[in-house]
Design a protein around this nucleic acid. Structure first.
Lengths: 218, 218
DNA sequence: ACTTTTGCACTGACCAGTCAGTTCAAAAAC
DNA sequence: GTTTTTGAACTGACTGGTCAGTGCAAAAGT
């Protein structure tokens, strides 16, 4: 995990990048532990130990355990959103269709999950909880990611490439879920499969080539 | 939530009714609280209070907090599996195709999630965790549910109705994910939508009717 | 050159509170 | 008469958060 690459080393701290490096180590330790055990079951002592720093250092760098977690969330979803948007724009630049863009975003999603599996686990596990401190953070951050997919769907309809009867938010959610669950299952239960395999299976589903001869192409 | 209806199959006589009712109340209390807060953040005192029983009663009925939770999991997934299987068999009985069966299972899944949203939340939140006591329980139980979908896909291929190039386990996982995430999003962010709306959106995706007039791409 | 001071980053023992699980006598329900 | 539930007290382990103090590199003072 390299959840934390966007911090610049020049902003507030005058003592070089030492502090950023510590925060980075804490992110990495926290994301793994929380993905495995959940937020409440993970102790600050564990995080500190895994990061190789003292417990006090955690509180020197973050106001609380929850704040550490929230910053982790914002950071990770930021990376995902950027990756999805990049895939969509690259496709457009290369003259691909909107379906091609969706396909490229599926792949980008898979690459992300393959690279940051722990973060993905943690995100899914917390997303639909209620009554938690970081619920609002999570909703904002979710909407950013889903919006990228929704935009492509909207453009596809506007261009007449997609049926204007599709339900944008529901379809976007379903697509995200398809990728999310398939990828997590891949990681957890069939890690030997290649990314291309998984991509091919999802691509087929997206493009309605599940039915035999009669449904898809002619 | 009525996550405990199947217990009543036996032990109807011999003084078991009262105890079952207590266990039922504890299931209902636990599923809600754990869905909201997570397993570790939920205390036994809370569960007892919500169920309207004394703490001692919890330990009279279940060996431990974990055991209560595991039985809850087994129970809930049992209900889901039965529901999916029933949908599949009903479709077959009525002479529907395998795609019809998948469609019926999507609806059954939505109905289940609509009825037991808390259980679904909890299940998703725990499914991909590692290093937890009930991991093996969870894997067994997951496979039971996914297997129902896989069976239908397999039959569909054998009957020549579905392309023999689809990847059964991956496609099954993707379909489950599609329903799961779309439904949870529906509940959490667009609760005003009807079940039929959601079903229609997913149905369209399943049957490749996303692209405009021309199905698939050229 | 060398000493002294400053303050950031970090440390880890400590504290006050919390929680799962136990115990058990007595009451209630069957 | 037996099963089930109650409810409060208790234990012992664990946890989030605190804080006085350490180390050290650069700046200031001599």
């Amino acid at each position: 995990m390299t959840i934390g690459a966007m911090e610049s080393s020049r902003t507030v701290d005058s003592g070089g990048g030492r502090r950023q490096a510590t925060r980075q180590k804490l992110y990495e330790a926290a994301v793994t532990l929380i993905a495995e055990q959940g937020f409440s079951a993970t102790t600050v002592d564990e995080i500190a130990e895994r990061a190789g720093v003292a417990k006090g250092t955690v509180y020197y760098n973050f106001a609380s355990k929850s704040v550490l977690f929230e910053e982790l969330l914002r950071h990770g979803v930021g990376l995902l959103t950027a990756s999805l948007r990049e895939a969509s724009e690259r496709t457009a630049r290369e003259g691909g269709s909107k379906v091609d863009a969706l396909d490229a975003m599926i792949r980008a999603g898979l690459v992300f999950i393959d690279r940051y599996p722990a973060f993905t686990q943690l995100y899914v596990a917390e997303l639909w909880r209620t009554n938690r401190a970081w619920q609002s953070t999570l909703m904002v951050v979710r909407q950013q990611a889903v919006a990228v997919v929704e935009d492509v769907l909207r453009d596809g309809i506007a261009a007449g490439e997609l049926s204007d009867e599709i339900d944008i938010p529901l379809t976007a959610a379903a697509l995200v879920g398809m990728v999310l669950v398939a990828a997590l299952d891949w990681q957890a239960f069939q890690p030997e499969r290649s990314l291309d395999d998984v991509h091919a299976a999802l691509s087929r589903l997206l493009q309605g080539r599940v039915g035999g001869e009669r449904a898809g192409r002619g």
